[in-house]
């Protein structure tokens, strides 16, 4: 997750199975907590934790997957580009 942002991603979302239906029993619940931790860290360094999200979607639910992708796209568009990219571009321009 962190490396994706470091490489310039404007937003990242992690998709797990529906809660209670994970093949690895609690893997998706643990992933949710790790996402929360990473969000806090992203807030601390000023990248913005709201750029990261976790969704739970059933493997067979294609329409919901597409819906979430659109939702996340809109969310990130509203926030603008990853501030890291902005700073790097400004430096290059200068």
């Amino acid at each position: 997750m962190m490396v994706a942002f470091q490489k310039g991603a404007d937003g990242v979302y992690v998709v797990g199975c529906l809660e209670g239906e994970c093949h690895f029993l609690t893997g998706n619940l643990r992933a949710k907590k790790k996402v929360e931790y990473a969000k806090k860290l992203l807030d601390e360094i000023g990248v913005g934790g709201e750029r990261l999200a976790m969704y739970n979607i059933a493997a067979s639910d294609g329409p919901r997957f597409a819906e979430v992708a659109r939702e996340m796209h809109e969310k990130i568009k509203a926030q603008g580009p990853n501030p890291i990219k902005g700073a790097t571009l400004n430096k290059k321009a200068a």
Binding site: M2, V3, F5, Q6, L41, E44, I45, G46, V47, P83, I84, A87, T88, N90, K91
Partner: peptide, 12 residues
């Protein structure tokens, strides 16, 4: 390491 790199990059 990732967090530090990003914090620096954000400052240009």
């Amino acid at each position: 390491a990732s967090a530090l790199k990003m914090a620096f990059m954000k400052e240009g």
